[in-house]
Design a protein around this nucleic acid. Structure first.
Length: 480
DNA sequence: TTTTGAGTTGTTCGA
DNA sequence: GTCGAACAACTCAAA
């Protein structure tokens, strides 16, 4: 009797290397049917934004080609996963479906239900950890509680057994005698109908090969000065792995091993820089830990007191922020970079987010939604942690008095103005001394640079000092 | 149980 | 120009 067929359900693990579910299917020995299912309606209120869909399209294309190069193919389907899996199992006579876990609350519920139904219908299910270094429930305090502070969480992670070896990409495996039906990639309509993705194409190479290359490029250079350069948006000082990680084109375990192997024999100074980078990978772990234990935080503050924060609802100000027209160059540069490339440098994410929440007093949920809709790396765990942290209502939150001064931040982290000049070109001829506060420049300097405040570049939508005082007062109102 | 030390990423003011 | 303190009080995690 020939070994039975296995369905490998790809989700946020669009890779062949270090893919536990695929590994298991190959080990089993029978024919393998790789499948991806597109179902917007199962997003739990967080449907992928256009940027993220663009990335997914490219990533699926890449995975498809990689599978074809191994004599296999990727079956694409649309509709509720439960129905599609059931139909696929019948069409391909599969007796087992395998997948790697995801952690978004809505998807956890869905997967649980699918597992029960499959097993009730005689279809075996096995799921595997593949997207994190540690499962969210494996790390806990001495009392058995979840962590809410990063440093002890991180230390606890380091006490755990080291991540296992990276699983090699299988080179070949049996294919079914006939393939089940598949739609075409364009059928999924993931790509935008308007051509704004041109800017994306030059900035990114989605897919497993692109992810590996991005990691290598980072290890070959930027990592050695990571701790300093990571804060300079005008440089290529960060790894830019976030969208690749989100789609699972590379696993954190691959990153961990790449660093750990390279680390040996390097000077202490290098190791320190590399550890700083790995620490950021553990922030991602922490975000998933929190998402798992506090699923409501995707739209509600972790700290209850913030339910009564006096937020302001001002669509006009929100729009100015979204479009990068706040009149604060470093903030506007960030939001424009986001719009054009689907990504924003981390330092600028903090500045821009702080500005929305503390200068404009607009609810952090509005910012989280905008980032979700526009980022190629939109990730529910990371996005939630980041925004709650900024707003001061989350884990390890920023103290209320930590209000970023967009002028100082600009001068400090974009000292040569490279970043602002690139994304806010209408200020490019302004002398560096005024670049981060153009409204304060003398009239003749502005004229010389071809800048008219309120005409060619917006006047500041709020005054920094006033906004700061208002924010302090608003935060103080929580205390009493 | 109570205590203690600590907590990603800052800014402003006044000496 | 530089430097240290203040900005509040709270919660978490571990001893």
């Amino acid at each position: 009797m020939p070994p039975p067929t296995t369905l490998v359900w790809f989700r946020q693990d669009l890779r062949l290397t270090d893919h536990p579910a695929l590994h298991e299917a190959v080990k089993r020995g029978g024919p393998i049917v790789p499948v991806f299912i597109w179902s917007m309606e199962e997003s739990g209120g967080w449907p992928r934004g256009a940027a993220s869909r663009w990335w997914l399209h490219q990533s699926l294309l890449s995975l498809s080609k990689d599978l074809e190069a191994r004599g296999s193919r990727l079956i694409l389907r649309q509709g509720p996963a439960r129905e599609q899996l059931q139909a696929l199992a019948e069409e391909s006579q599969a007796s087992l479906v395998v997948w790697n876990r995801v952690y978004e609350p809505a998807h956890v519920l869905r997967d649980k239900e699918i597992m029960q139904r499959c097993e009730a219908n005689g279809l075996e299910v096995r799921c595997f950890p593949g997207s994190l270094l540690h499962e969210p429930w494996e790390v806990q305090t001495a009392q058995g509680n979840p962590y809410q502070v990063f440093t002890p969480f991180w230390k606890a992670c380091l006490q755990r057994p080291a991540p296992g070896p990276v699983l090699k990409a299988p080179t070949t495996w049996p294919t079914p005698s006939s393939w089940p039906q598949s739609c075409s990639l364009p059928d999924l309509q993931l790509e935008p109908s308007i051509p704004w993705a041109d800017g994306f194409r030059t900035a990114w190479q989605p897919g497993e090969a692109g992810a590996r290359q991005r990691l290598q490029t980072f290890l070959d250079g930027p990592i050695e000065s990571y701790l300093e350069d990571r804060n300079r948006p005008g440089l290529m000082g960060t790894s830019r792995l976030s969208p690749h990680l989100h789609c699972g084109e590379i696993s954190p375990r691959q990153i961990w091993h790449a660093i750990t192997v390279t680390r040996a024999g390097k000077p202490a100074a290098w190791q320190q820089q590399a550890d700083g980078f790995l620490r950021e990978v553990y922030w991602r772990e922490f975000a998933y830990h929190l998402l798992h234990h506090f699923p409501r935080t995707i739209d509600q503050p972790l700290r209850e007191a913030f339910q009564r924060f006096p937020w302001r609802h001002d669509p006009r100000l929100l729009k100015a922020w979204q479009r990068g027209n706040t009149g604060y160059p470093i903030v506007d540069a960030g939001l424009r970079e986001l719009w054009h490339t689907g990504w924003m440098h981390n330092r600028v994410r903090m500045i821009a987010a702080s500005f929305l929440v503390k200068h404009l007093l607009i609810p952090w949920q509005e910012g989280a939604r905008w980032f979700w809709d526009t980022l190629v790396d939109a990730d529910l765990a990371n996005n939630t942690l980041g925004w709650q942290w900024t707003a001061g209502c989350g884990a390890d939150a920023a103290p209320y008095f930590r209000i970023f001064n967009p002028i100082l931040q600009g001068k400090k982290f974009d000292p040569k103005g490279a970043y602002v000049k690139r994304w806010v070109p209408e200020l490019a001829r302004l002398p560096l001394a005024w670049l981060h506060e153009p409204w304060a420049a003398p009239k003749d300097i502005l004229r010389e640079a071809g800048v008219q405040i309120g005409q060619t570049y917006p006047a500041p939508v709020v005054d920094h000092a006033q906004a700061r005082q208002a924010a302090l007062a608003a935060f103080a109102s929580l205390g009493s």
